[in-house]
Amino acid sequence: MARKTPSVDPLLADFQTLVQDTEKLLQQSASLAGEQAEGLRAQIEASLARARTSLHANEESLRQCCASGVKATENYVQQHPLQSLGVCAGIGFLLGLLVARR
């Protein structure tokens, strides 16, 4: 069963663009006052709004992906309880060995 996982690349690209735009606008705003400064603030607010929208869109897709993963895990544990218990015991044993070494 192939799941569509949300890509982080577009989100990172949006935030990199936001940071670059903000840095550029801050450099330009050092010598500006009045209406020009208000225009720059409006551009920064628009960039932040785009970033928030992108973040919220990706947040919802990540929630859906995680919910389906949780549901699949619950189904597997219910169908194979002894195997799940064995795997958990093995992982716990290995973690105990690692912690005891420190």
Rank of each mutant, 00 (worst) to 15 (best):
G34T: 01
L94N: 13
Q27G: 15
G34S: 01
V77M: 06
L48N: 07
H56K: 12
L55P: 00
R63I: 06
S84G: 03
K71Q: 15
P6W: 09
L95D: 10
P10V: 00
T17M: 04
R52A: 11
L62D: 06
A46Q: 11
S84C: 13
G39H: 06
L25Q: 10
A89R: 12
C66S: 14
A13F: 07
L95A: 09
N58Q: 11
N75E: 14
P6C: 10
S29H: 02
E35T: 04
Q27M: 14
G96I: 01
A89T: 03
A37N: 04
V99F: 11
Q43H: 13
F93N: 02
Q79A: 01
L85V: 00
Q64W: 03
E45I: 04
G92D: 11
E45L: 08
A57R: 12
F93R: 03
Q83N: 06
V87F: 11
V77D: 03
A67L: 15
L97V: 00
Q78C: 04
K4D: 14
Q27Y: 13
A89G: 03
G39M: 09
G34A: 02
L62F: 11
R102H: 06
A46S: 09
D9A: 12
S84Y: 02
Q36T: 08
S61F: 07
E60L: 06
I44V: 10
A57D: 14
G96C: 00
E59G: 08
A57L: 02
L82H: 15
S54W: 04
A37Q: 07
A46T: 05
A51E: 01
K24D: 15
K24V: 07
C66V: 11
A72I: 05
K4R: 10
D21P: 01
L97I: 05
C88E: 09
A72C: 00
S7V: 00
S31G: 13
V77N: 14
Q79R: 08
Q36K: 13
C66D: 15
Q43G: 05
Q79N: 00
L12P: 06
V99K: 14
K4I: 08
S47G: 07
Q78A: 15
H80K: 04
S84V: 06
A33S: 09
V70W: 14
A30C: 10
L12A: 11
G96V: 02
G90W: 04
N75P: 05
N75W: 10
L12K: 06
D14I: 07
A37P: 03
A57S: 05
Q28F: 04
V77R: 07
S29W: 12
L32G: 04
R41Y: 10
L48M: 05
L26E: 15
C65W: 15
E23L: 13
L98Y: 03
E45S: 10
V77K: 12
G90P: 01
A37R: 05
A2P: 09
S68C: 10
E60G: 00
Q78G: 07
L11Y: 09
C88M: 06
L40R: 10
A30W: 09
P81W: 14
G86I: 09
S7H: 02
Q20L: 08
E59N: 15
S61E: 15
T22I: 00
R101N: 01
F93M: 14
A2Q: 12
K4S: 11
M1V: 07
T22L: 04
D9F: 08
L82A: 12
